[in-house]
Simulated scan of single mutants.
Amino acid sequence: MAVLAAPISRETGWSQQWIYGALSLAILVSGMLAPLSGRIIARTGGRAMLAASGGILALGLTLVGLSHTLWLFLLAWTIIGVGMAMGLYDALFATLGTLYGGTARRAITSITLISGFCTTLVWPFCALLIAWLGWRHACFAYAALLLISVFPAYLYSLPAGGGQTSGAARHKMSGKQAAIPRDLFWLLCAIFTLASVVMTAVSVQLITLLQSQGYTLAAALAISTVLGPCQVASRVVDMAFRRGHPVWTTLFSVGLVALGLVMLALFPQLALIGMLLYGAGNGLRAIVRGTLPLALVKPEEYAIIAGRMARPALIGQALTPLIGGWIFQHFGAQATLLLLCVLALLNVLLTLVLKSRMSPARAS
C-alpha cells in the first residue's frame, strides 16, 4: 500500500485516508479471524489453509485491480484480510509450532531473517510494475505470482496432516482450565499489542517525527533506511544465541525499542543511533511473536493460544494509524513521540513482570 496508494488516489480521486483505511480494515478482519485460524491449524496442521491463502489473497488483489468504486475496493481489502488471517506470520508460526514443537524456533528465526528484506525487494519491484503496467495490472501480476508460487510452495514444503489437538483438549482450553495461567496469557497479549502499536505508529509517522526534530526530508529518509538492515542484523544475532529462553529475547526487544525512542525524543541529534537501536529491537519483535508462546505451551495447544494472542495485537495495529493521526493532529509531534516512549517503557515493565511470574522451569 505504501507504493500503491498514490497512483490509486491520482486515478480514482479517492482520498488517501480511505485508501489507507482499506488496509486498516484488512488488518482488523485478520485480527478478528485469528482465533478461528488457530483452531483450524490445531485440527488440521495448517498446510491446506496456508496453501489456500495464496488463492484468497490473489482473489482480493484481482478485485483491487478491478475496483472502480470505493465499495468494491473496500470489499477487496476485506477479502485480503481473510487471506492475511490464513497465511501471514501468525498462521505460519502457529503451523510450524504445531508441526515441529520446540524445534520450530530455528525455522521461525530463519523465516523472519528472509522476510526482513521484504520491503527492500518488494517496494522497488512494485514500483517497477506500476511504472511498466499501471497499478491495476500490477495488482493482477501480484495475484498471478501468488497463485503460481504460494499454493505449490506450501504443498511441497509442509507435511500433510499434523493436527494434534483433540476435541477434549480444545474444550479444555476454551473452559476455565487454560493452557497457560490467565495472568501470563494477558501479559503476553498486552506485550504483543503494545509492541504492534508502537511499531505501526513509528512506521506511519517516522518521517514526520524526524522532520519535527529538525531534520530535512532527505535526512529523515536517510535515517529511516537503517531500520531494515538493523532488523535483519538483530535476527542474525538471535540465530547465534537461539538456545537462550525467548523471554530474554523479548526483554532485549522491548528494551532496545524503548531506548531508541527515548534517545530520539531527548537527544534528537543522536537520532541515527536511536533508530539503530529501535530497528534492532523491532527486528527481534517478529521472532518473539512466534517463539515466546511456543516456549510456554505444548505444541498441540500452541496454534489456538497463538491465534487468541494475535487478535488484540492486530486490532491495535489496525486502529493505530487512526488514533495516532488524531493525536498528532491535535497535540503535535513531540507529544506523539513522548506517548510512544511511555508505551515502550510500559512494555519493558510488563516484560519484567512476565519474567518474574514465570516459573523457573519456564524461564530457563
Score class of each variant (00 low, 15 high):
residue 163 G to C: 07
residue 177 Q to C: 07
residue 124 P to L: 00
residue 191 I to D: 01
residue 145 L to E: 07
residue 186 W to G: 13
residue 177 Q to L: 13
residue 218 A to V: 05
residue 128 L to G: 07
residue 153 A to R: 11
residue 120 T to G: 03
residue 191 I to G: 04
residue 128 L to T: 14
residue 171 H to N: 15
residue 194 L to A: 12
residue 121 L to F: 12
residue 173 M to Q: 11
residue 212 S to W: 06
residue 147 L to W: 04
residue 129 L to I: 09
residue 153 A to S: 11
residue 153 A to V: 12
residue 127 A to V: 04
residue 126 C to M: 14
residue 198 V to Y: 08
residue 164 Q to Y: 02
residue 160 A to D: 08
residue 136 R to I: 02
residue 206 L to C: 09
residue 155 L to K: 13
residue 211 Q to V: 06
residue 132 W to H: 13
residue 196 S to L: 12
residue 195 A to L: 10
residue 168 A to V: 06
residue 171 H to R: 15
residue 167 G to K: 06
residue 188 L to I: 10
residue 203 S to T: 07
residue 120 T to F: 12
residue 210 L to S: 01
residue 186 W to Y: 15
residue 180 I to S: 03
residue 158 L to H: 04
residue 192 F to I: 07
residue 164 Q to W: 02
residue 205 Q to P: 01
residue 181 P to T: 01
residue 171 H to E: 15
residue 200 T to S: 09
residue 187 L to V: 00
residue 216 T to Q: 11
residue 210 L to Y: 09
residue 123 W to Q: 14
residue 179 A to G: 02
residue 129 L to A: 13
residue 180 I to T: 05
residue 196 S to T: 15
residue 159 P to T: 10
residue 167 G to I: 07
residue 198 V to A: 10
residue 134 G to S: 11
residue 135 W to A: 01
residue 159 P to E: 10
residue 206 L to H: 05
residue 182 R to C: 07
residue 204 V to F: 13
residue 205 Q to V: 00
residue 164 Q to N: 12
residue 139 C to F: 12
residue 174 S to L: 14
residue 166 S to F: 12
residue 215 Y to A: 00
residue 198 V to T: 14
residue 123 W to E: 11
residue 169 A to H: 02
residue 209 L to V: 05
residue 162 G to M: 06
residue 160 A to R: 12
residue 196 S to V: 14
residue 217 L to I: 05
residue 190 A to Q: 09
residue 186 W to M: 11
residue 120 T to E: 02
residue 205 Q to M: 05
residue 213 Q to R: 15
residue 216 T to L: 05
residue 187 L to E: 00
residue 194 L to M: 12
residue 162 G to F: 08
residue 209 L to N: 03
residue 135 W to Q: 00
residue 163 G to R: 03
residue 149 S to G: 04
residue 197 V to T: 13
residue 123 W to H: 10
residue 161 G to S: 11
residue 162 G to C: 04
residue 127 A to L: 05
residue 188 L to V: 10
residue 216 T to G: 15
residue 119 T to D: 10
residue 169 A to Y: 00
residue 124 P to V: 00
residue 146 L to D: 03
residue 201 A to N: 05
residue 195 A to Q: 15
residue 212 S to K: 06
residue 187 L to M: 04
residue 152 P to K: 13
residue 145 L to S: 09
residue 132 W to T: 10
residue 154 Y to E: 08
residue 207 I to C: 07
residue 133 L to C: 02
residue 132 W to Q: 13
residue 199 M to N: 14
residue 209 L to A: 07
residue 178 A to Y: 02
residue 181 P to M: 02
residue 206 L to G: 06
residue 144 A to C: 03
residue 209 L to H: 05
residue 180 I to A: 10
residue 144 A to V: 04
residue 148 I to Q: 05
residue 158 L to K: 03
residue 138 A to C: 12
residue 167 G to E: 11
residue 130 I to C: 01
residue 149 S to L: 12
residue 216 T to A: 11
residue 212 S to C: 08
residue 159 P to H: 08
residue 178 A to P: 10
residue 203 S to F: 08
residue 201 A to W: 02
residue 164 Q to E: 03
residue 196 S to I: 09
residue 211 Q to L: 06
residue 191 I to W: 01
residue 143 A to W: 08
residue 147 L to F: 08
residue 178 A to T: 09
residue 209 L to K: 09
residue 177 Q to A: 14
residue 175 G to T: 01
residue 158 L to W: 03
residue 151 F to R: 13
residue 150 V to N: 03
residue 176 K to S: 12
residue 126 C to S: 14
residue 210 L to C: 02
residue 169 A to V: 15
residue 134 G to R: 08
residue 130 I to G: 00
residue 206 L to P: 08
residue 134 G to Q: 12
residue 206 L to W: 10
